[in-house]
Structure formats: structure tokens, C-alpha cells
Amino acid sequence: MAPAKEQNQKAFRLKRRNWGMAVDEDRCTGCEACVVACHAENNIATVGEEQAARGRAMHWIRIERYYEGTFPDIKVKYQPVLCQQCDNAPCEAVCPTYASYHNAEGLNAQIYNRCIGTRYCANACPYEDRYFNFVNPAWDEPLNLQLNPDVSVRSVGIMEKCTFCIQRIRAAEINAEKEKRQLKDGEFNPACVQSCPTEALVFGDLDDPESRVSRLAKSNRAAKLLPDLGTKPKVTYLRRGSWYDEQNT
């Protein structure tokens, strides 16, 4: 190899990121834009009434709704739940085929082709954010034309889940590499984050102390979901604030 070329290759290296997300429960209004955005981006099949009634609906991100109190002193909490991209992911160790594995950027990746459908990972995931193709997904023509060519369509018998829109991550990285520059905070976003009208979802590099997501992760409202399980989730929840009369006076 010509030394010049070698030099050139050494000169640029894309920084490896530690992708994470912050979910602000104080902003989230339960509008579900994220839910449909994810369907559209990731070719998630709609399963139809009969299958949905049998508990087979797939929503990689869902808005959990919890009531507190009784009428009329009632409160509701919305909590968007997607794959927490655990650093210590219970779904990974149990997968016999490495279909659920940890990729170099610390994401819990799902290799559809490798999955044989034991559904062990889904039992192990304490966040219940793994969805299984119980039947072969179908798109009534021409709804198939909506499919995103960047994302593989899953078939019957395999597990799927939120990927942090890995296709968008890859595309951005490839682009940056091509242009020999580092990625900027907020340069691209997963589909749910991009749509969220209240900006309840913030995505970015947790290793970059300046990124919005890493600053939010240090917020005093920050908490993890099921923290005692030691799964080390990369999604941080920002608890709802409360309103005190004194606050503004």
C-alpha cells in the first residue's frame, strides 16, 4: 500500500459513540406521534384486530399510562417505554444464537436472520420491549409500497425490537466518515425523537459531556426504569416536576 494512502486512512477515525436517550415525562403528552413514527420508519407490521386481541400487537415504543388516586382526585402518568439498550442486557446472555447481541457502540442489536424464535430474550427483558412475529406480517397491496428500503422486513417466527433506528445511525456515520468529520450532537435523530412535538425525547452521545442527552442524564430529575435490576439502561427518565406556588413568587 502506498504510504500516502495509509497516512490518509490513519488520519481520520470516526469517534465511537455511546448512544443514549432521555425521556422527559414532564414534557410527554401521550400524543403517540412517536408510536406511529416508529411504525413508519421501521416497517413494523400492523397485525390486525384478531391478532391484536390475542396480544400480538407490536409497538417498539409504547406510552404506558398509569393512574394514581381515585375520581375526582386523579392523576395520570405517561411513560414512553422503548428498548432501554441496556449495557448489561438480560436479553443478550440468554439468546442461544447471538441474535440478540451487544454491538460495538453498546447498542442491543437484533440480528433478525440469526433469530430462531426461542422467545427467551423476551421473557428475560424486564422492560417487556421485545416483540415477536407470531404470524407472517402482511401488507395489503399497495401498502407494501410504504416500506422503508433501509430496514429489513421481518418474517414469521422472529423477535424484533427498538433498534434506536440503527439504520439512521449507520447512515449518519457513513456520511460523516465520507466527509471526514465527527458527528454533531443532534445532527440526526431516531424517528420517534424527530417527531416528538414536545421534545420529550432527546437522543445523543452519552460519552460527550456537552451533548443534550448527557446533560439531561445528569439532571436531578433523572431516574432509570427498574434501576435495582442492574441492567444499566441507556435510557434516562426525567421525572415529572411539581408545581409549587412559591416557585414563581
Partner: peptide, 10 residues
């Protein structure tokens, strides 16, 4: 279909 299968949030 996306709207039919989107869970009503409440």
C-alpha cells in the same frame, strides 16, 4: 391501519 392499531393513550 396505523391509526386502528395505535393504542388510544388513555
Amino acid at each position: 391501519p396505523w391509526m386502528q392499531e395505535m393504542p388510544d393513550v388513555i
